[in-house]
Write a protein that binds this DNA or RNA. Structure first.
Lengths: 336, 336
DNA sequence: GTGAAAGCGCTAACAC
DNA sequence: GTGTTAGCGCTTTCAC
């Protein structure tokens, strides 16, 4: 577990280039204020020696780490397997790379683990944290705030201690839901059902709010709580059909659930969209374009949200920064 | 992006405990060779001051980093969203946590990115690397070897430069496939089809090999290449039914594909398992237990594979270590 | 067993 | 512009 060979130091580079360590350092860090011929010589020495700066030594003096923590708190594995996360992580990764920053992944397994994360963040190992705090009563936000690390949340955090002026990136869940339901209304549908996500997550709660804003006096039996999974979507759809066989439209809180919905409708012989119109949420291409019929859904810019989180964090003034809520757009395909 | 407050140093702890920095350091690192009363006093000072060691300073002298890189090379997002990965990552994370090591995630976007990863690994920022090199002609293994970092691969790497004596953790894909097909044979099935994964991945290739070992003279039309996804499984199944409507069993290379298979069979009115028996691979509970009928499949210990990778790497002697191939077991449910 | 002191490799004042 | 120098916070000989 030790470094394999002793790597060349800045000293060695300086010696080879015939300059001082300071000058070598300047060149390595951009070369400002160093005359061209010297820059060139140092660059060459770096090249020849295969010099790579020792990040530990650098951090020790600069107190920067060029690393940010991505904290994913989740009891269940599922969340990680959610393409939604994968995409966001990808956006984050791209942006960090562009800033020469590393991604330190912190997966927490239940509450006992939280203190470990707290210690790590408080330990000043990273320049900031991107936190996915999914549940309303999650202790993580408070913990992160106490650690005193610049933080950006993925999705609006639920109300808990230290969440008051948290910076977050989210999409307009409520507005997107409204657009979805309004579209169904415009189609002339009058018995519109909603399959929610886990309501202890703000995204699911916000989408339900949006649904209610457009369909304020929907029969409660037209609302089924679910869990963002295809299997959950199937279960919920069966329930709904049992309770209100006359329903003529469904707004599912995400595409995964919507795919389950479509399967049940086919199984029960209901045509989509003529008998029942279906709208999803996410516009996860791997899902929405593959379903039969192709899914009409609300697009949110998932990868972009990840990028933005990282950009906000690295941009410097997280303290000054405001949260960002990105717009959603309705993507019409064949299911509604 | 700078450390928020100046955190207490070891010096401060030593002062408060009335000992030297050296002694304080000894206590912080386990306390060997320090008399009990002093140990106690230092511990208390640490507690009171909320001292956390500065990892950069520590690395600078110890040349250890307590961090390992997890490299995932994948053009497509899909791979990341694969529950298989999520589980393995989880196992890795758990084991690293137990060793007080951090997980640095390196996602590569296409070939251009490889040099960045190479530089990072060669830069001596981490104690080792866990690499998921999925494709046969992946340049990553060679790159990693040149970087000179202790490395363990996830899955048997394809043959490429620097792969000769690579250490890897894999499950017995070939044996598992044999068991699956043999089970179908034992059930009396004689027209057994196989839906493969992407054949440029060793796991998929090995499973196909296993299939062929038990069914050496299967009609080529009974083999359909696919991609480990539900949608891909559906497509492949339709193909197979078109080519050989008389087939009476299907071995799908993973559970995700098998779920697609089941859907197509239901759609076409074939009963499972009476008309067509179906076996999957993975035993991804979220999938295999949810299908209708519940999926008979080959279990591989995914999370354990992740743990093992980390353990092998941190155990010290990667150079001395041998690759590990974990056994698989057939899990009988209702589909075969 | 404990302390004093010498760096680890680098950056950032500060001189020149 | 470039070099000199003083640390960053820690571990680790080496005396005592």
């Amino acid at each position: 577990m030790t470094e394999t060979a002793s790597r060349p130091t800045l000293e060695a580079v300086a010696a080879r280039a015939g300059v001082s360590r300071a000058t070598a350092s300047r060149v390595v860090n951009g070369g400002d204020g160093v005359r061209e011929p010297l820059v060139e010589r140092v660059r060459q020495a770096v090249e020849e020696l295969g010099y790579v700066p020792n990040q530990a030594a650098r951090s020790l003096v600069t107190r920067r780490h060029d690393a940010v923590a991505v904290v994913i708190a989740e009891p269940e594995t599922r969340v990680f397997a959610d393409p939604f996360f994968a995409l966001q992580l990808r956006g984050i990764s791209k942006e960090l790379t562009a800033h020469d920053s590393q991604l330190v992944l912190l997966l927490t397994e239940g509450r006992d683990d939280h203190s470990r994360v707290g210690r790590y963040l408080a330990g000043g190992h990273v320049d900031g944290a991107l936190v996915f705090s999914l549940h309303l009563d999650d202790p993580l936000p408070g913990l992160v705030q106490r650690a005193g690390v610049p933080t950006v949340f993925g999705g609006r955090p639920g109300w808990s201690e230290g969440t008051r002026d948290a910076v977050y990136v989210d999409s307009d869940n409520r507005g997107g839901a409204r657009a979805a339901v309004q579209h169904l209304v415009d189609l002339g549908r009058t018995r519109i059902a909603h399959i929610t996500g886990p309501l202890d997550q703000t995204s699911a709660a916000d989408r339900l709010d949006g649904f209610r804003e457009v369909a304020p006096d929907a029969d409660p039996r037209l609302i089924a709580e679910s869990d963002f999974t295809p299997a959950g979507g199937e279960r919920a759809m069966r329930e709904l059909l049992d309770r209100r066989p006359d329903l003529d439209a469904v707004f599912a809180a995400n595409d995964l659930a919507a795919s389950g919905v479509l399967r049940v409708l086919r199984e029960r012989g209901r045509r989509v969209p003529s008998d029942v119109a279906v709208v999803g949420f996410d516009d996860m291409l791997a899902v929405a374009e593959q379903t039969d019929p192709a899914l009409t859904t609300v697009r949110q810019p998932i990868e972009e949200m990840g990028r933005l989180m990282a950009r906000l964090l690295l941009g410097g003034g997280v303290d000054a920064a405001a949260s960002v809520v990105l717009p959603t757009t309705l993507v019409r395909r064949d299911s509604a």
